[in-house]
Structures are given as C-alpha cells and as structure tokens.
C-alpha cells in the first residue's frame, strides 16, 4: 500500500507544481495590478513606489523564487486589493464551493448511478428510454442555460426556491442541480453501458446458472464490477466540479472560490489567483489518490481475503 502510495504522492506533488508554475507565469503575462490598484490621480512616483512595495519590479525569476519559498512556508502573501492574506481570502470562500460541489456530486451519485442501473436492468423498457433521453439532453445542455431555465421556472414562475445567494438548504438546491446536470447525465449513461457490459459477461451467466437470485447477482457481482469502471470517471467528475463551478457561481451569485478567481483575474490580483488555483489543483490530485485507493476496496483482485 505505502509502496504504491509514495510514488503516487510524489507524482501528484509534481503535477501541482507544474500547474501552479504555469499559472504563475500566465498571471504575470496578463499585466500589472497597479493600474487598477492605484488611485486615478496617483503620480508616477507613487505608482512606482507601489510596484516596488509589492515586489512587481523584481525580475520574474526572483518573484517566482519568492513565491515558491512562500509556498514552502505556507505564506502566500496578501491580496493586493483587500490586503487580507490571500490564503484567508480563498479559505473563507472555499467551504461555499466545496459545499456546492459535494451537493452536486451527491446528486450525481444519487440520481445518475441508480437510474443507470435500473435502465440497464430493464433494458428496452419505457423507463430505460426515458432515462436515455434525459441523459442525452442533459449532456447536450450548457449549464449556464440550465441554470437560467431553472431560475426562471422554479424561482420566478413557481416561487418554490430562492433565485440566488447562499443561505439555507433551499439556496443550495438549484445551483447544485445545475452543477450536477451534465455529470448526472454522463454518470447515468456510463452506469447503464457499464452494467450492460458486465451483465453480458460469462461469469454473470455462470452465477445465474448456479442459481443465484437475480437481485444478488446484480448487486454483488454486476454492480461492483460496473462501479469499478465508473470510479475513475466519477473521481474526475468530483475533481472537476470544484473548478467547473465558476459559471454556476456566477449565475447564482454563489460566493465561492470560482467567482473570487474570476474577479481576481480581471484585477490581476496575483496572490489570490495563485492560491485559488493551487487549492483547486491540490483538490484534484487528492481526489485522484482517493480514487486509486478506492480501487483497493472495490477490486476483489487487489483486496486480500475476498469472500467471492
């Protein structure tokens, strides 16, 4: 286990490093925060002094070195605009985004996977057709449009749910559905086809021939094997929900990391962009490692002492 995990961790750190370095360079290429930062009547000298103070006059490589050294000491600098620690700025919004992503992920698991299984078991039935249709439409729908439609129908016309902002559970419903939409449709399709594939395999037939009842076969054998294939895809989905929530956060005025980064890019607030992307990249690799680990639990060939 550890032998497997350590190289994986090292690799992940390398991935995070590359991503963060790319963002460092990318964000330096988009220009200087001072233009938006300085007062309109600021003099040349005061602008130069501000640049100096923020370390923007140093050569790029020095800035990069300072940045890496900061990362090592877990000191990411202050937001240029709010003058609060960039780390705090991101962290204060992280929970909102994680909450949204997890809610969406739970929806994907709770809707996409069971419907996919059902559709596979009852292949060709009306429910199967409906499920496939929904999955197809869901995958073809841009999520900003879905969000606008949901607001229009459920918040404006029916008045059941709030339109935007963050608050109680009811505020979470529409953004979570919007964020989950594409993923749930994809999960539904993949579960269905995965189950169908497994169900057509010989060992299922063997199990059935051995007289195991239908439900047991499906749950114990087919579902586990189908899930195994799904875990990677679901893992990538979970990882991407966090980064992909920008649009949903914009549409629903959700005070999360995505919108923070979006705004920080237009203001060139480097420290915040960097921390934001760092957090997203770390989240991604952590989820990936968890996916790897879950293989161990799900795959009987890896697990020792399997009862099957």
């Amino acid at each position: 286990m550890a032998a497997h995990l350590i190289p994986r961790l090292l690799q992940s750190i390398a991935v995070v490093f590359v991503v963060v370095s790319l963002v460092f360079v990318g964000s330096r290429l988009i220009g200087d925060p001072i233009e938006a930062y300085a007062a309109q009547n600021a003099t040349e000298e005061s602008i130069a002094a501000q640049r100096e103070r923020l370390g923007l006059l140093d050569p790029l490589i020095v800035q990069y070195g300072n940045f890496l050294w900061g990362v090592v000491r877990l000191d990411f600098g202050e937001s240029i605009f709010t003058e609060q620690p960039a780390w705090d700025e991101v962290m204060s919004r992280l929970w909102a985004t994680v909450q949204l992503s997890l809610a969406a992920f739970i929806l994907i698991l709770a809707i996409g996977v069971p419907i996919g299984v059902l559709a596979a078991i009852r292949r060709g039935s009306i429910p199967d057709l409906i499920a496939r249709l929904i999955a197809l439409v869901g995958q073809a729908m841009p999520n900003f449009w879905l969000g606008l439609l949901l607001i229009f129908v459920f918040a404006v016309q029916l008045g059941w749910l709030p339109t935007s902002g963050r608050g109680g559970f009811e505020n979470l419903v529409l953004p979570a559905i919007t964020l989950a939409g594409f993923g749930a449709a994809a999960a539904m399709r993949l579960t269905r086809s995965g189950m169908l594939e497994v169900l057509s395999n010989d060992y299922i037939r063997t199990a059935q021939a051995k007289g195991l009842a239908g439900r047991t076969v499906i749950l114990r054998h087919a579902l586990r094997n189908a899930l195994l294939g799904l875990v990677t895809v679901l893992g990538i989905m979970l990882a991407q929900l966090l980064a992909g929530s920008i649009i949903v956060e914009v549409v629903f005025a959700w005070p999360g990391v995505g919108r923070l980064i979006f705004r920080s890019i237009s203001l060139r607030d480097f420290p915040v962009i960097q921390v934001g992307v760092l957090v997203i990249a770390v989240w991604f690799v952590v989820v990936n490692i968890l996916v790897d680990l879950s293989y161990n639990i799900l795959d009987p060939r890896i697990r020792v002492g399997s009862e099957t």
């Binding site: 404006v156 339109t163 902002g165 005025a253």
Partner: peptide
C-alpha cells in the same frame, strides 16, 4: 446590501420577494 451580479437574477430575486 446583497451582491447579485446577474441582472436577471436581481429582478428574479425582487419578484420572488427576496
């Protein structure tokens, strides 16, 4: 004061009484 960047969402929030 609430921040609602989308114009449509501001109007919807008003109509929904939020």
């Amino acid at each position: 004061a609430r921040l609602i960047p989308e114009i449509g969402a501001r109007v919807s929030a008003l109509e929904a009484g939020e």
